[in-house]
């Protein structure tokens, strides 16, 4: 690889749709073998970024390489080395599992199509369902099929766009185990998601809001960078406190976590002062705690909304 360790090394990635800036001068450097998570609200530019990286959308600006190829000039070469899993299931529902995989294998020009496909079907435990039409599969099985198809040509990198949307927790867990196994074998993975537990399983996360990368780093690092302080309010009547705390000086936002309330702000002194009046309330415990990733994301999203609203 020409760039040493970087699987993705792009600078100033920009995409405009009309006057709307979907992705704004994004710099992304992903080392080989790492699992990176793309996070951000709907419409923030995650899908657009992934599509530009694998040559499905033309970037308006930006330069750099993906797997050592100029991502603007050599999309065809990149396509051969990348497995891309679309957000919506995009295999042929009127073809069976086997037929879908065989089609993909032929398009990539793999030798011994039948054997390669059989091996892949066996590996994924799909042998009994191999002649079932893809359209008849449940969400979890569709996702397995899609991953199997993406991996068929042994790509060096996987680009996964919300791969676990609409998939049950067990299937989600299995999926991530598979991702980590592949990553251990040296595969680079870029995955977009809305799930916090998935974000926490990534080596690094990138948070995009309205086209801008607003945070990046390890999970701990992103929490650290946020400068956020959080108090957890628990006990009787905790939920009733939310409207009273809302908008108080020092309180940036209030969020429900089950029966508990997370009250967060960047100025610990003011935050403490805001909570002071309730400290003595009966049956209520107020404790300072480490902000969770979700707290940080809520803050980032609120910040973004404030800046653009």
């Amino acid at each position: 690889m020409s760039n040493g360790e970087l699987a993705i090394d792009v600078h100033g990635l920009t995409k405009r749709f009309g006057t709307k800036v979907a992705v704004n001068r994004a710099d992304i450097q992903v080392p080989v073998g790492e699992v990176w998570g793309f996070l951000g609200p709907n419409g923030s530019g995650k899908t657009t970024t992934i599509r530009m990286l694998c040559g499905l959308l033309r970037a308006d600006e930006g330069s750099g390489t993906v797997l050592g190829f100029d991502f603007r000039a050599q999309p065809e070469q990149i396509k051969r080395e990348v497995g891309y899993m679309t957000q919506r299931f995009s295999f042929w529902e009127d073809l069976s599992i086997r037929e879908n995989l065989e089609f993909v294998a032929r398009v990539y020009g793999l030798p011994n199509v039948k054997e390669v496909v059989t091996a892949q079907i066996e590996r994924l435990g799909l042998i009994k369902r191999q002649d079932q039409l893809a359209g008849d599969l449940s969400g979890g099985w569709k996702q397995r099929l899609a991953l199997a198809a993406c991996m068929l040509h042994q790509p060096k990198m996987l680009l996964l766009d919300e791969p676990t949307a609409g998939v049950d927790p067990k299937a989600r867990r299995d999926f991530w185990d598979e991702i980590h196994r592949l990553s251990d074998e040296g595969l680079t993975v870029l995955v977009s998601t809305h799930y916090m537990d998935e974000a926490e399983r990534c080596d690094r996360i990138v948070y995009i809001n309205l086209g801008d990368i607003v945070a990046r780093g390890t999970v701990a690092g992103v929490i650290e960078q946020s400068g956020l302080h959080t108090f957890v309010v628990q006990g009787e009547g905790a939920r009733a406190l939310a409207p009273q705390l809302h908008g108080k000086p020092g309180v940036d936002f209030v969020a429900f976590f089950g029966a508990a309330l997370h009250v967060s702000g960047r100025d610990p002194a003011k935050l403490k002062a805001a909570l002071e009046p309730f400290a003595q309330q009966k049956g209520l415990t107020i404790q300072e705690s480490k902000p969770s990733l979700e707290d940080v994301f809520i803050q980032l999203q609120e910040k973004g909304r404030g800046a653009y609203a």
Binding site: L56, K79, Y84, T86, R88, V107, Y108
Partner: peptide
């Protein structure tokens, strides 16, 4: 059907 994106992502 959304399969166009997949077709384009492959080396066809």
């Amino acid at each position: 059907r959304g399969t166009y994106e997949n077709l384009l992502a492959m080396p066809t």
